[in-house]
Design a protein around this nucleic acid. Structure first.
Ligand SMILES: [Mn+2]
Ligand SMILES: [Mn+2]
Ligand SMILES: [Mn+2]
Ligand SMILES: [Mn+2]
Lengths: 222, 222
DNA sequence: TATATTTTTTAGATTAGCCTAAAAATTTAT
DNA sequence: ATAAATTTTTAGGCTAATCTAAAAAATATA
């Protein structure tokens, strides 16, 4: 009963997986459509197809949920995506803001032998260049533990930047201008009441960042 | 006037390029169909499309030829294919008979930045694991020089194995059983008239190979 | 609860790439 | 030079993935 999965289906499964991380309800048709830049009617069609293949459970008008096999494929696609991002940054010297689009293509290459050898070649990395955890070949994924958004921590706290909630190129380039990268140690000095902008200290230099930026920085308190 | 090229088109252009290497006539519809495991009618459709895009010149009933821009795309696809094969063998320790199918997928990844960085990462290799030359980023390709098939050389000659005319897995595995790999030094001892089988010496050991095998070994006389 | 709004599904088209069968053109053989 | 054989093109269909517009269902509002 092994069906073949193509890149379109992989993209849908990946999108459903991401969307189901926040709420544990069924994922809505519109949410999927928005996330994939497509139309609701296209999503409905595809949900029927994926349900047929046993990859999602779909109840008309009430959204979808991944089945176990659907989730395994989603996690495997995410695994490939993140391993390729590590390859691009560590081996080919790409900057962390340049790799996502190329990884979107590479994640659809079908060869588990390739994926597993790539994993070994890269030294079995646990996180990608944006701090996102890399699932293993069984679809097991390390949980972020004790992490918060920078906007959620208390004044005076020291913390380490371990991830970004937005990996758009424009955001990542913006971070670099503020000397922020994964591993940076940050102390929250103050939050201004007026606009909720933050005063922080990084590498002994005091900087100011907007609350919009702080909402996209994942940190671990020390 | 820059059109986008998808993987189907790249495969057609690559096939036309290979087929036009032997004869310098236009490439026939049937030849393309056979090479791509498709039907002549599908090829006709695609030739119209490629002609529309200026990638081939097509005259009804008289086959096609690549235009300069078509040839450039074909060579770039071949470049990507062969660079990825080098990556798989040199970096991920795949055997030379295992890489072709994976490279068939990887060759369609679109990012010239990626291709060029991969090239550098691999040390600007000039040949792939099967001895085939790798075009540079301008579509320039090193010519095989002074090479012959093993079946064409004279008795007594010493030569080096520099390439294979068949890179099927079954043939490559067969070569390994005869201790033959790229760089092997071979002396042709004798050709038997009865079945044109050959007696050769490799690594101080005398072996017998069929003329079918000898027809697929590209050698350079010393 | 009835009505208005929003979301989702259905119906009907479109496009790319493929197919089979039939027609047309070319090439080969007599 | 005709006729036969082969090759190529055309005609008409199919499927996957998409779209727009209309209908149906669910949800929010008064
Ligand atoms: Mn990414
Ligand atoms: Mn990432
Ligand atoms: Mn190959
Ligand atoms: Mn090769």
């Amino acid at each position: 009963m092994r069906h073949f999965i193509n890149h379109t289906e992989e993209n849908y499964l990946k999108a459903i997986f991401s969307l189901s991380q926040t709420s544990n309800q069924g994922v809505s048709t519109n949410a999927i459509a928005k996330s994939l830049n497509t139309k609701a009617s296209s999503v409905t069609d595809m949900m029927k197809k994926l349900a047929e293949k046993g990859l999602v459970s779909y109840k008309k008008y009430y959204g979808v949920q991944l089945t176990d096999s659907g989730q395994l494929i989603a996690l495997n696609t995410i695994r490939k995506h993140r391993l390729w991002e590590v390859f691009l940054v560590d081996k080919l010297s790409f900057n962390w803001d340049e790799v996502h689009d190329i990884a979107e293509q590479l994640e659809h290459i079908q060869s588990s032998e390739l994926t597993n050898r790539l994993d070994i070649f890269l030294g079995n990395p646990k996180f990608d260049p944006h701090g996102d955890p890399i699932p293993n070949s069984h679809g097991e994924i390390e949980n972020y533990h004790d992490t918060l958004l920078l906007s959620e921590i208390e004044t005076g706290t020291f913390c380490t930047l371990v991830g970004v909630a937005d990996s758009s190129s424009v955001f990542l380039k913006h971070l670099e201008k503020s000397q922020l990268k994964l591993g940076s140690e940050i102390r929250l000095i103050n939050v201004f009441e007026y606009d909720r902008s933050l005063s922080i200290e990084v590498a002994n230099i005091q900087r100011s960042i907007s609350n919009r930026v702080a909402d996209n920085l994942i940190v671990k308190p020390l």
